[in-house]
């Protein structure tokens, strides 16, 4: 090799070294949840420490304040990773941020296991099938809206909002929350957040960003109502 080649090599290598520290930009800590393991936890320990949680989410995990979600009977994986998401995002406007800030991984798992073990809220069997087109929410839930690009929520959340049909066999489908009987106000708030792209830090959130992208306010309201009450008008 000739001298000029060596000179160029060293110059470029030097440039590289100088540029290196600057090149290390902050990479967003992204949580890829597509390959998660099952979430195990000590439900009894979770119950023992759940006094703070119960203040809003009640002892039985079925909250009375519409903005606070029901937790009873929800998939442990969903709850655990939702709490991790809240910790990661650390949003100032969320009451949960401060509440979860000091919890460690074991505690999160225990809470998840505890609330997953509780019986879910009982509600009337949601109307379904062709007869329920009367309800806008039901229609969006079961068929979506092709003209607006809204996918049928039942595809992932189950025909009766009971969760993903393969949740028992495939772990990652337990990240899809069981929505049946969930508080409408809470659902509205969450769908608004997904539609507006507020959550981007997990793969599930990215998934929901797309699913909710084409929802308008009226659809969100209709869906939330259907989810909570199963009402067909």
């Amino acid at each position: 090799m000739n001298n000029s080649l060596l000179a160029c090599t060293f110059t470029l290598a030097g440039l590289g070294l100088i540029a290196w520290p600057g090149a290390r930009a902050d990479v967003e800590t992204f949580m890829d949840l597509r390959n998660i393991a099952a979430v195990q936890g000590d439900a009894a320990a979770g119950k023992a420490n759940s006094a703070t949680c119960a203040a809003c989410h009640m002892q039985d995990g079925i909250s009375v304040v519409p903005l606070f979600p029901n937790l009873a009977g929800q998939h442990a994986e969903y709850m655990y990773w939702r709490m991790r998401e809240i910790q990661q995002e650390a949003r100032a406007d969320s009451p949960m941020t401060a509440l979860l800030a000091n919890l460690d991984d074991t505690q999160l798992r225990n809470f998840s296991a505890w609330y997953a073990s509780l019986p879910p809220a009982q509600h009337a069997e949601p109307a379904r099938g062709a007869a329920s087109h009367a309800s806008e929410g039901a229609r969006i839930w079961s068929e979506g809206d092709a003209t607006r690009g809204i996918p049928p929520c039942q595809g992932c959340h189950g025909r009766k909002a009971e969760g993903h049909p393969l949740a028992a066999e495939v772990i990652r489908w337990r990240l899809v929350p069981i929505l049946r009987g969930q508080a409408a106000a809470y659902v509205t708030q969450r769908l608004n957040a997904y539609r507006d792209g507020a959550h981007t830090v997990t793969s599930s959130a990215r998934m929901m960003n797309g699913a909710a992208a084409n929802l308008d306010d009226a659809s969100i309201e209709a869906l939330a109502k259907w989810i909570e009450t199963g009402e067909s008008k």
């Binding site: 979506g144 092709a146 607006r148 690009g149 998934m207 699913a211």
Partner: peptide
């Protein structure tokens, strides 16, 4: 089955 249009497909299959 009836066609649903690209927007509905992309809603779930954005990536």
């Amino acid at each position: 089955a009836t066609p649903v249009g690209e927007r509905m497909c992309i809603a779930c299959h954005q990536l």
